[in-house]
Design a protein around this nucleic acid. Structure first.
Length: 225
DNA sequence: TACATGATGCCCT
DNA sequence: GGGCATCATGTAG
């Protein structure tokens, strides 16, 4: 293997296999997500997405997200109103909204705003922090060069696969609950600089600056420019 | 019941 | 930079 991993965490086994439930950081409360998705987007950058299961611990730092609003946002799944598929968006804040796209990929969002008001943040890229080997296994990738790390979680479909996120398993789960195996925590890290650009891969309302990313971070799905 | 679509990623040129 | 796989979902008929 021999691949170096940039990490701001210290004293943690990066392979994540023999870690005995370390306190990674502070659990984000539901109130954090009970706000405008644009504000949540900015502030969720730098936080850790954590998957904790028996014999498995994964963590990745959130470095790129997009905000999706309500009916005033034509690109949002909530724009056409509530359906069986998007009902999580209309529920309480801090829940996982997972959808299946292009017959191949899952994407993870976090619901925002109070119960009854739709809105979410799409997690688009992570910087791998804990459990790199497990992520590589899940992605079917052999880590040989440092550049291979970027293939693990740089993109919404990629990170979902690396973390084993599926609709059947995670949709509707409370990311702010201590008993949930998928959570978002704050370990104190703060991005030095946040950039804002147009959202990626959409046709409607494509000009709105609702994509947020950590400046200078190599794990974003697409460089600015 | 049929059909059009898509908040992607991978492979090829 | 462009083509395309692949299927759950929503909507029209």
């Amino acid at each position: 293997m021999g691949v170096a991993v940039d990490s701001t965490l210290q004293g943690i086994d990066l392979k994540g296999t023999k870690v005995r439930a370390p306190k990674i950081g502070q659990q984000l409360p539901p109130e954090f997500f009970d706000r405008d998705p644009q504000l949540v987007s900015r502030e969720i950058l730098g936080k850790l997405l954590v998957r904790r299961q028996p014999g498995k611990l994964l963590a990745g730092r959130i470095v790129e997200v997009e905000a999706y609003l309500g009916e005033d946002d034509p690109a949002a799944h909530a724009a056409a109103g509530r359906t069986l598929r998007n009902s999580v968006l209309f529920g309480p804040p801090g829940r996982a909204y997972v959808y299946f796209i292009y017959g191949n990929h899952y994407c993870l969002n976090v619901s925002c705003l109070p119960d009854g008001v739709p809105g979410c943040v799409l997690i688009r890229a992570l910087e791998p922090v804990i459990g790199v080997d497990e992520m590589a296994r899940a992605r079917g990738i052999t880590l040989q060069a440092s550049a291979d790390l970027k293939k693990l979680t740089s993109g919404p479909g990629r990170l979902a696969e690396a973390f084993g996120i599926t609709r059947a398993r995670d949709n509707g789960n409370d990311l702010t609950s201590m008993v949930s195996d998928l959570r978002i925590v704050d370990d104190g890290y703060r991005p030095a600089r946040v950039l804002t650009t147009a959202r990626i891969g959409i046709t409607k309302a494509a000009e709105r600056p609702l994509r947020f990313l950590v400046s200078e971070n190599r794990f974003v799905s697409r460089a600015v420019g």
